[in-house]
Design a protein around this nucleic acid. Structure first.
Lengths: 234, 234
DNA sequence: ACAAAAGTGTTCGTGCTACACCCATGG
DNA sequence: CCATGGGTGTAGCACGAACACTTTTGT
């Protein structure tokens, strides 16, 4: 059985930390993912990851960017990386469709317009998802959490400049547990991923010391904690 | 431009730590990779990673196993995992060929028969490789080195039972630098990946204390050192 | 003065490295 | 009894977690 009708699609799990409260004054940031609702069978009504078929003249990263452009302003996507491939012959009924999946990250301060069939969903309250997209999503979240620990990947979730409180909220939302701002600052500071701008932001309405503003030293992915054990001698 | 002639291949970088000395008495273990030499154009004479086209009725892991069976005894492959996809439209001239790549590991004590066009090559002295296979190989080595640090992946490179000296040689060969047997034992022991069998091996020809024999507690990949930093509180 | 929020200092535990020292065997 | 290789004990370091304390603002 040679391969005649095998199609290749690209699917991207795009994450953003967003305020999930009706009242925009109340601060309740959560990790959200971009999904669109299927209008046609199969899986009508279920929510899908953005993506589509790979074209002959593009590689997968290019394709992911092109597909995303239909849903969000792609300039907002600050990081895009490959995850696994899903190739079970029957993952989508009726056709042989291989999915290469990606992880995409959008900074906190971006708020791109969306088509009417597309919306952000908090990962804590996902709707019914189509095909194996739920598995893809779990995979993407796991990868994001892992990389937050040993890389500077948070640059793609944070605004260009930010306070440590804001960065803490981003980490808490993405990891799903409480992170201490003190230690966060020290860990990232020691690794050289965070630099102070020198400026400060105005304090909140109820007073308090004005927070210092920070920036990520680089806006490309870099591994900052390579060897946990079995380091090279020296 | 829809996708008409897009083909999908699976390529596997199979590694084994092997004694690379003419004299089998002298111990000089090195990390080796399985390659076959192309008899036809294009890239005639260059060495390729084992693999081939994906069939419609199989997923990629199945395909990788099937393709490898043509080159080695697949029972020898103790671990197989997905790496990245290479999808540049012109990575192979003339055809649109997407490559999904895998990492395969063969234990030290296996010595499978090989076809005449196929051979093990030490990674320190690679021949001319075909297409982008050199890049794939570098990628695979990096992934292997990383996983040796935070998982029990060495189970797939080690014999079923082994001495700490042997295990040390495996780590040295795979990582490319000297690893201390003392610390190796403690790190892996603490994590519970290594268990003592109770038995000992006979000492070498020049005497010495008989070494204890060990075994890996599991023969499936397990992450043993999840969070280097930003652990959940508790 | 007091509350609130940010930032610093200090202590503690843990995991890894390095190296010295003890153990068991063959010659 | 000595050389050889295996195993253990221990000191030191680096990193991160937790928490008390100081600093800077608004009211």
């Amino acid at each position: 059985m040679p391969n005649g009708n095998t199609l290749h699609e690209v699917l991207t799990a795009v994450f953003q930390v967003r305020n999930v409260n009706e009242d925009p004054e109340v601060d309740n940031p959560e990790l959200c993912v971009l999904l669109w609702q299927r209008a046609l069978q199969p899986e009508r009504g279920a929510w899908s990851l953005p993506g589509g078929l790979l074209r002959e003249d593009e590689d997968m990263t290019t394709s992911a960017r092109r597909q995303l452009a239909e849903k969000v302003d792609v300039r907002g996507v600050a990081h895009l990386e490959q995850l696994s491939v899903f190739s079970e012959p029957n993952r989508v009924p009726g056709v042989r469709l291989i999915a290469s999946t990606f992880l995409g990250l959008v900074p906190l301060d971006a708020d791109p317009d969306l088509p009417t069939d597309t919306a952000w969903h908090p990962v804590s309250a996902l709707p019914r998802t189509a095909f194996d997209h739920g598995v893809v999503l779990t995979h993407a979240r796991t990868r994001l959490a892992a990389k937050l620990s040993y890389t500077n990947i948070a640059f793609a979730l944070a605004p260009h400049e930010f306070t440590m409180s804001t960065l803490r909220e981003i980490y808490c939302a993405a990891l799903g547990y409480q992170v201490d701002a003190t230690n966060l600052q020290r860990v990232l500071g020691r690794r050289g991923v965070l630099v102070a701008t020198g400026a400060t932001a105005p304090p909140g309405p109820s007073g308090g010391r004005p927070p210092a503003l920070y920036r990520f030293a680089e806006s490309r992915l870099r591994v900052t904690d390579e060897f946990a054990a079995l380091r090279p001698p020296g």
